[in-house]
C-alpha cells in the first residue's frame, strides 16, 4: 500500500479477542514508526495478549515491567540509547487508559515534564478491560462497568472522562494528539509527526472494545467512526499547545446513535443522554466544529 510500511511488527497468533481495537492501534502505530523502534508496554491487555512466554508477537525489541511505570522504564531505555549513541531509535510506549490516566499518571507526568524523547500512546478502551471491565478515570459518563454498574440507584459512571490530552498540553509536551483506530491514515500521520518531534509526544487513541463495550466484534471500526461522527471523540493535534482539528466530520450525528450501539450505555434514559449531548455540544463549540 502506498505510504504504508508493509512489514508487520506485531505478528499474528497473539491472544487478543476477535475484533480487538488495541491491536489495530498498536499495529498501525508500529507501521508508522518502522523497524528502528523499541516498544515499552504497561501491564494491560496489549502486554498480556502479545507475550505469552515462550512466545512474543513483537518483531521489534520490547520491554514490560509493571502497570504504572512504563514511562519510567522508557526513560531508562532512552538513557541507555543516549549512552550508546543510538538517539535515532524511536521509543514508543503503549499504555491502556488505566495504565495511563490512573496508575501510570505519575511516571507519565515525570517523563513528560523531564522532556524524555519518547512517544507515549494511550490505547483508550475506557475501562480496565484486562481485569474485567472496571471503571477507570477514562470511563465516560453513563457507562456501566463492573465497578460502576447501572442499577436501581445508579446510571453507571457519574463523571466525565479525564481529559488527558489537555493535561499533556499543560505539561508543555510539544506534540499532543488524539486519534481513533477508525481513522488509520490520521492515526499514522500523527504517530509519524510524534516521531519527528524532538522531545516527548503523547497520542491518545480511542479504541472500541467489543468485550467491554458490548457490541459485535465486526463493529469495532464502526463504533470508532460513530464516536468521531457524533463528536463524542474529537480528532485533533496540539503542536506546541496550538490546537488544530485534523478530522472534521461532514455531519454531526446525535450522540444517541453512538450510545445505543453499545450495551454499556443501553440503560441510559433520555435525561442522561441529554446531559451527554450537552457536554458533547459544548466540546464541539470549544473546538470550533460547530457554531
Amino acid at each position: 500500500m502506498k505510504g504504508v510500511d508493509e512489514k508487520e511488527y506485531l505478528a499474528p497468533g497473539h491472544r487478543a479477542c476477535a475484533g480487538c481495537g488495541a491491536t489495530i492501534a498498536a499495529r498501525l502505530a508500529l507501521k508508522a514508526l518502522g523497524e528502528n523502534t523499541i516498544a515499552v508496554s504497561a501491564t494491560g491487555c496489549l502486554e498480556v495478549i502479545t507475550t505469552p512466554y515462550p512466545e512474543t508477537a513483537w518483531e521489534i525489541p520490547w520491554i514490560h515491567v509493571a502497570f504504572e511505570n512504563a514511562s519510567a522504564v522508557a526513560s531508562g531505555v532512552e538513557g541507555a540509547l543516549k549512552a550508546q549513541g543510538k538517539e535515532d531509535t524511536n521509543i514508543v510506549v503503549f499504555g491502556g487508559d488505566g495504565g495511563t490516566t490512573d496508575i501510570g499518571m505519575q511516571s507519565l507526568s515525570g517523563a513528560m515534564e523531564r522532556g524524555q524523547n519518547i512517544i507515549y500512546i494511550c490505547y483508550d478502551n475506557e475501562a480496565y478491560m484486562n481485569t474485567g471491565i472496571q471503571r477507570s478515570s477514562s470511563t465516560p459518563y453513563g457507562a456501566s462497568t463492573t465497578t460502576s454498574p447501572a442499577g436501581k440507584e445508579s446510571f453507571g459512571e457519574d463523571k466525565f472522562k479525564k481529559n488527558m490530552a489537555a493535561i499533556m498540553v499543560a505539561h508543555g509536551v510539544p506534540y499532543v494528539a488524539t486519534a481513533c483506530i477508525s481513522h488509520p491514515q490520521d492515526l499514522m500521520a500523527k504517530v509519524k509527526k510524534a516521531a519527528e518531534t524532538p522531545g516527548p509526544a503523547y497520542i491518545h487513541v480511542l479504541q472500541p472494545c467489543a468485550t467491554g463495550w458490548g457490541y459485535s466484534p465486526d463493529k469495532t471500526v464502526k463504533l470508532g467512526k460513530l464516536a468521531v461522527d457524533t463528536h463524542m471523540w474529537l480528532l485533533y493535534e496540539a503542536v506546541n499547545g496550538q490546537i488544530e482539528v485534523t478530522v472534521k466530520p461532514s455531519q454531526k450525528l446525535p450522540v444517541e446513535e453512538y450510545l445505543k450501539a453499545q450495551k454499556r450505555f443501553r440503560h441510559l434514559d433520555e435525561e442522561h443522554i441529554e446531559i451527554i449531548q450537552k457536554f458533547v455540544d459544548g466540546q464541539s463549540k470549544q473546538f470550533g466544529l460547530t457554531e
Partner: peptide, 25 residues
C-alpha cells in the same frame, strides 16, 4: 559520563534502572 535521570520517585528510579539495564548498559 553517565545519563543522570532525575526521576519523580523511587518507584521510577528502579523502573528506569530496569529500562536502562534491559537495554543493555
Amino acid at each position: 559520563d553517565s545519563q543522570y535521570i532525575r526521576v519523580e520517585s523511587e518507584h521510577s528510579a528502579m523502573s528506569a534502572a530496569i529500562g536502562a539495564s534491559g537495554a543493555g548498559v
